[in-house]
């Protein structure tokens, strides 16, 4: 009896704290999500009522060469870009953590690229850097290398977007910094007394203690990068060109939904992506038991 009361009390407190989110998820998230799940089984042009067509959208999708392109391009972007971005962000965060004068100032400067978000200025800038008459090319010319139209060649366009992603490394950096703040200084001092080298200090003390944050960044950046849209949209002008080389999954989805008026197909694409990301995340969560350390 007492146990039951205790359990009820626990549930009651838990759900009380959860209630804002629960209301939000049941109304603002669940309804639109379930609606889109239903729409993925229909032919829906947005202006006239949806017509149920079963699994047709999914069947069409698996035969759509452009869809395969978009999945390939996005996977490349995620699996190459995210690790590079995180390594860069962690390196800078460690670098700017302590022991350098003018730290606050440097940190603020390093965050500047992320302030721009998906501003149109970025599109202009990237053309200025990686275009045929861009800065990168004039640099290469002075060094005597061959130049290339980086931004508009099918074999390099995606890499310019990966560079953009790495360049906007501010968010993971801030999260790393916040994580580093939670590492008690005593531990560093203790390892210093032990005479540990800097690398040992990092790999034995710092890294294990910030694994929850590393894990968070990894999961979030992967989920985010799979849905990357803005950078390709502004830089390719929404086309995903040249030759679909920057056709991100969500960019194609947007074209299908908003330009071709095939919201049913777009919804099917979205739910496939959800499953895809969910699998990737699940794998990460399972492996995380081996390398993420919590204090609880």
């Amino acid at each position: 009896m007492n146990k039951l009361k205790q359990a009820w009390r626990n549930n009651w407190v838990g759900y009380l704290f959860l209630s804002p989110w629960l209301i939000g998820v049941l109304t603002l998230s669940a309804i639109p999500m379930l609606a889109s799940l239903y729409l993925s089984f229909t032919s829906y042009d947005m202006f006239t009522p949806p017509k149920f067509i079963g699994l047709d959208n999914y069947a069409t999708m698996f035969q759509d060469a452009k869809w395969r392109d978009s999945l390939r391009v996005t996977s490349m972007y995620v699996f190459l870009g995210v690790p590079l971005q995180l390594i860069f962000a962690l390196a800078i965060a460690l670098f700017l953590n302590r022991g350098i004068s003018g730290l606050k100032f440097y940190r603020a400067i390093y965050y500047v690229p992320s302030l721009f978000g998906g501003s149109v200025a970025i599109a202009l800038l990237w053309r200025q850097l990686f275009g045929s008459k861009g800065l990168v090319n004039s640099f290469l010319t002075t060094l005597g290398f061959e130049t290339k139209n980086w931004i508009a060649s099918p074999d390099t366009a995606l890499y310019t977007l990966i560079v953009l992603m790495i360049w906007q490394f501010g968010s993971p950096m801030v999260i790393f910094l916040a994580g580093l703040k939670q590492v008690p200084i005593e531990l560093y001092e203790a390892s210093k007394i032990d005479g540990a080298s800097k690398w040992k200090q990092f790999s034995r003390v710092t890294l294990p203690l910030i694994t929850p944050v590393v894990f968070f960044n990894l999961v979030m950046q992967i989920i985010g990068a799979f849905q990357a849209f803005t950078s390709a949209y502004i830089i390719s002008g929404g086309s995903g060109g040249p030759l679909n080389s920057t056709l991100f999954y969500t960019l194609y989805l947007y074209q299908k939904g908003f330009t071709h008026f095939q919201m049913g197909y777009a919804s099917a694409m979205a739910w496939f992506l959800l499953l895809f990301i969910a699998c990737a995340t699940a794998i990460l969560f399972i492996t995380s038991k081996k390398w993420v350390y919590y204090q609880e």
Binding site: I31, M33, A35, A270
Partner: peptide
Amino acid sequence: LITMMLPFHVTIIP
């Protein structure tokens, strides 16, 4: 976590 995984373009209209 799953609510984060659906591209927002398909939930805009609903």
